[in-house]
Amino acid sequence: MEKVDVIPPEPSNYLVQLTSVRGIACLFVLIGHAVQVFHYKKENIPTGWWIFSSLFNAEAAVLVFFVLSGCVLSLALRKMDKPSWRFIGAFYVQRAFRIYPLLWFSVGLSLLCLWSVRQTISYASVVDWLARNLSTPIDIHRVFLALMGVFTRYNGPMWSLRVELLFSVVYPFMLIVLRKQRYRSILLIVCFLIALIPFPDGLGPQFALAFCLGTLITIFPAPKKHYPWVTVGCFIMLMCDRFVFSNMHFRENVFDIFETIFSFFLIRNIYFFGKDMKFLNSRFLVNVGELSYSIYLLHLQLMLVLFSVFMKVWGEKGLLESPVSTQILLVLSTFLMTLILSCFTYRVIELPLHSLGRTIARTMRSSG
C-alpha cells in the first residue's frame, strides 16, 4: 500500500502545556454552566459582574477540546506510515478504553442525581435544554443508549462525547486523507461547507472542521517565529466573541466556525512554543488538565445536587435573586466536590483502564 506523505514528529513535552489548556477549558465549562444554566433575576446582576461572567464561554471551550483532540489523536497514529487495519484496530481499542469506562460511571451518577433533584428543582428555574434533561423518563432503552454514548439527555455534557465517539470512528481515515497533499484541500473545503450547515445542536458532523484543523497542527511545519499577541488575541476572542457580537444575531454554527479557527491558532502556538509560556507549567493547571475528562463529565450533576441542597437553606427564590453570591458559591462548591470525585475516578477508573487499553493496543500493533 502507498505510504502517506507526512508523518507527525514524536511527541515532546509540549503535552504538558496542552494538558494545562485542557484544564483551563474544563474550568471555563464548569464556570459557564454555573452562570448560564439557571434563570437568575437579571435586574440583580451588576453590569460589571454580568460582563465578567459572560467571558466564561463554555461553547468555545468545547471547540478547544475538539481541536485538541484532532491534534492529540494524530499523534496516537503517528507511527502508521501507511493504511493498516492493525494500527486502526489498536486505535479503536485504545479510544474505547479511554472514553467508555468513565462515561459509564457518569451515566450511573447522572441517574442517581436526576432521581435526587428532579422533584426539588423546578423546571422554570433552569434553561430549556436542562429542563428537558430533568424531565426525561428513565427507562432501559434510554439507559442502554446512554451507556453507548448515543443518548445524552441524562447528562448534558455527554453530547460532546457523542461527537468524540463519532470522529473516533472516522478519524483514522480522515488522517490518511489529510496526510496526502493532493486530497487535503478537498477534505478541508468539504468540512468547511459541512460546518456552514445548521445541524441540530450536538449532532456532530459540523465539528469535522475542528478535528481536521487540529490534525493539521502536527502536519504543517513549525512557524518560524512566535508572535505572543496572536496567542493572546485568540484567547481573548474565544472568551468574548459571543458577547461582543451578540447583537449581530449570528447563527450558532457561525460562532462555531470562528471559534474553531481561533482555537486552531491558539493550540498551534502552544504546540510549538508552549515551553515559553511558563504559566502553563503550573502544577495546578497540569493537575486539573489530567482530571479534565472527569471534571467535564461529572460537574453538572454535582452542581444540580448542590443547588438542591442550598435550596433547603436559602430557598430557590433566594438563590436566584442573589445571582452573584449564588454563582460564586456554586463555582467553588462544585469545583471542590468535582475535584474530590475526579481524583477518585482518575485513579480508580481512568488510569488503570486507560493503561490496559494502551497495553492491548501496543500488542495489536506489534503482532503480525
Rank of each mutant, 00 (worst) to 15 (best):
K224R: 14
H226S: 12
Y227P: 02
P228F: 05
W229P: 05
V230N: 03
T231Q: 06
T231E: 05
T231P: 05
T231F: 00
V232K: 10
G233H: 06
I236G: 04
M239K: 02
C240A: 14
F243N: 07
S246L: 03
N247K: 10
N247Y: 12
N247R: 11
N247G: 09
M248H: 11
H249T: 13
H249M: 12
H249N: 15
R251N: 14
E252R: 09
N253Q: 15
V254M: 11
F255S: 02
F255C: 11
F258L: 14
F258Q: 08
T260Y: 06
T260A: 01
I261F: 09
I261V: 15
I261E: 08
F262C: 10
F262E: 13
F262L: 11
F264R: 07
L266Y: 05
N269Q: 14
Y271W: 07
Y271T: 04
Y271H: 13
F272M: 04
G274F: 01
G274T: 06
K275L: 02
D276L: 09
M277N: 09
K278P: 00
F279P: 07
F279G: 08
N281A: 12
N281F: 03
F284S: 13
L285S: 05
L285E: 07
V288P: 06
E290I: 09
S292K: 09
S292R: 08
S294P: 05
I295R: 05
L297M: 15
L298H: 11
L298F: 06
H299P: 06
H299M: 08
H299Y: 04
H299R: 10
Q301S: 15
L302K: 05
L302I: 13
M303I: 01
L304A: 10
L306D: 00
L306W: 07
S308K: 11
V309C: 14
K312W: 01
W314D: 07
G315W: 09
G315R: 09
K317L: 00
L320E: 01
E321H: 10
E321P: 03
S322T: 13
P323R: 11
P323C: 08
Q327M: 14
L329D: 02
L329S: 15
L330W: 01
L332G: 06
L332M: 10
T334A: 04
M337W: 02
T338N: 01
T338Q: 09
L341R: 05
S342V: 09
F344T: 13
F344P: 10
T345A: 01
